[in-house]
Design a protein around this nucleic acid. Structure first.
Length: 273
DNA sequence: CTATTTGTTTATCC
DNA sequence: AGGATAAACAAATA
């Protein structure tokens, strides 16, 4: 579920814990989310430390604690972060990691467990973990240039454009609904092989990637408001949903499966397959 | 019981 | 080497 802006939203849910000491760490050691990281190690390292800051990169997040401790993570398909009143908090069935502060329980919950957490312990204060520094530039980074985009597209000519937009190596943070929204805004059929796109379409794609990322962070990233009806977003999952573009005169939206992902588009204004 | 899910990783083939 | 592709992961919901 969570894409760029949703991850931003969840990251902020732990804000009440900023500057607060972790008094107790509750873990569900059998939970898959720990992967190669020791759940017990997380408990030992974070107990007594102070939450200093939260960071996001694409769909990944990273919380900085005192003592050179960094808690990284990914929400997968169903992961969520939220804060609950600390008084007699009891972890629910899918609450895999809980950081107890004096007033708040900071919770990582994830039913499907495609999410994950990791821990880095660094000597040098203030220095980010290497893996974080090595992440590719985000869409809104100044290093995300049209040239960089064109170079990537040249190396991947066959896949449908919708599918390629989900590639986190080039488009950190873009997920299923954003990819559909972008194809719709650029008016290209989502199944179009990347190699068939014109230079004009590529430059429009670059623009819309950035515009949508900015808008999504603003609308969803802070309060999770509902996007305006002028976006594809509010129409794409509705049975009998219609294209919100005026010129399309309420053409019926269509859903197809593209490489295993449900994809919504307007057959009237996105017909250049 | 079946089909579906806003995500990544891994294996395999080319 | 590195791109293309499908399957696997797991649990809730309709």
């Amino acid at each position: 579920m969570p894409e760029l802006a949703e991850v931003e939203y969840y990251l902020r849910q732990w804000s009440p814990g900023l500057g607060k000491q972790v008094e107790e760490v509750l873990i569900h050691p059998k939970a898959r989310i720990y992967r190669n990281t020791s759940a017990v190690g997380i408990r030992k390292q974070l107990t007594g430390e102070t939450l200093l800051a939260g960071h996001r990169h694409g769909k990944q997040w990273l919380f900085e604690f005192s003592g050179g401790n960094w808690l990284g993570g990914h929400l997968g398909m169903t992961g969520k972060l939220h804060a609950k009143p600390a008084s007699d908090f009891q972890p629910g069935k899918h609450d895999h990691l809980v950081l107890q502060t004096a007033k708040r329980a900071l919770v990582f919950t994830d039913s499907r467990m495609f999410g994950k957490v990791s821990l880095d312990v660094l000597d040098e204060p203030g220095r980010f973990p290497d893996w974080w520094e090595e992440l590719p530039p985000e869409v809104l980074d100044s290093r995300f240039t049209p040239k960089r985009l064109a170079g990537f597209m040249k190396r991947h000519q066959k896949p449908p454009i919708k599918t390629l937009l989900l590639d986190q190596r080039m488009f950190p943070g873009i997920g299923n609904w954003m990819a559909d929204e972008i194809c719709w805004r650029v008016q290209i059929h989502p199944a179009t092989p990347v190699g068939n796109l014109s230079d004009d379409q590529l430059s429009e794609l670059w623009k819309q990637l950035r515009t949508l990322s900015r808008q999504a962070l603003r609308v969803i990233g802070t309060n999770w408001d509902t996007p305006p009806n002028s976006w594809l977003f509010n129409h794409r999952w509705k049975d009998g949903g219609n294209c919100p573009r005026k010129e399309c005169k309420k053409a019926g939206l269509v859903r197809i499966n593209l490489r295993g992902r449900t994809t919504a588009f307007c057959p009237s204004c996105q017909s250049s397959a």
